[in-house]
Nucleic acid binder design. Structure first.
Length: 199
DNA sequence: TAGGTGATCTTG
DNA sequence: AAGATCACCTAT
């Protein structure tokens, strides 16, 4: 607990494995002196190689997704539906466009700050259960595009270990357009955790 | 269950 | 240069 994960850890070439191993780890931000932390309870893997659901499918590099081609350990944040900032962890080696979408966290620290950012009065599931709301709670914006995850403002710490049998693998959400790749079991969540976005 | 929202990408 | 698309959320 408490140790910042090194950049090299993210450079594993198996993105699904990284997505799984991120469960239980702690996503942290310190923005303008406001410290917030949440335990990662839900992730999805995306691969630039043979995955139609991925922005960088077929090694398609664009202005939006180019950071995915950098070495693992950088932040890929993009605006979705004109409103929502979605946070991904870039994985694999430089040149391989893989990333893990963080879909839900369990609030750990800085809850008051999270409530304020979300304009909420009490702690409920909608505080951080969902890729857009967790980014808002932790103050993650497209400003953080390309930020290294060993920086002072955004990082991941070691967390609890979970046995393999406590992890559920299922299909990803919102990728129906991806044809056969929509069937990949690349969504992972901690079984019976109350902060998972959807069961 | 439907509509808001605007950057990004693709097509023409 | 314009239109379709979109890794979602909130409120009816």
């Amino acid at each position: 607990m408490g140790n910042k994960i090194e950049m090299s850890w993210y450079q594993n070439s198996n993105v699904a494995e990284v997505a799984k191993q991120l469960l239980g780890k702690i996503l942290c931000t310190n923005i303008d002196g406001k410290l917030t932390k949440g335990k990662i309870v839900e992730t999805e893997a995306y691969s630039g190689d043979n995955d139609k659901a991925c922005h960088a499918n077929n090694q398609n590099k664009t202005k939006r997704n180019h950071v995915m081609f950098e070495a693992g350990g950088h932040a890929y944040v993009y605006l979705c539906y004109g409103i929502h900032h979605l946070f991904n962890v870039v994985t694999n080696k430089e040149g391989s466009a893989d990333a893990v979408l963080i879909r839900a966290v369990e609030p750990i620290e800085g809850v008051e700050i999270m409530l304020k950012r979300r304009k909420m009065r009490s702690v409920e599931k909608k505080l951080t259960a969902g890729p857009a709301v967790l980014s808002q709670a932790l103050g993650i914006l497209t400003d953080h595009y390309g930020t290294a995850l060993n920086s002072e403002s955004l990082w991941v710490e070691e967390g609890e270990l979970h046995n393999e049998d406590k992890i559920v693998s299922t299909t990803r959400i919102g990728v129906d357009y991806a044809e056969e790749d929509a069937l990949k079991l690349w969504r992972f969540y901690i079984k019976e955790n109350a902060w998972v976005s959807r069961f």
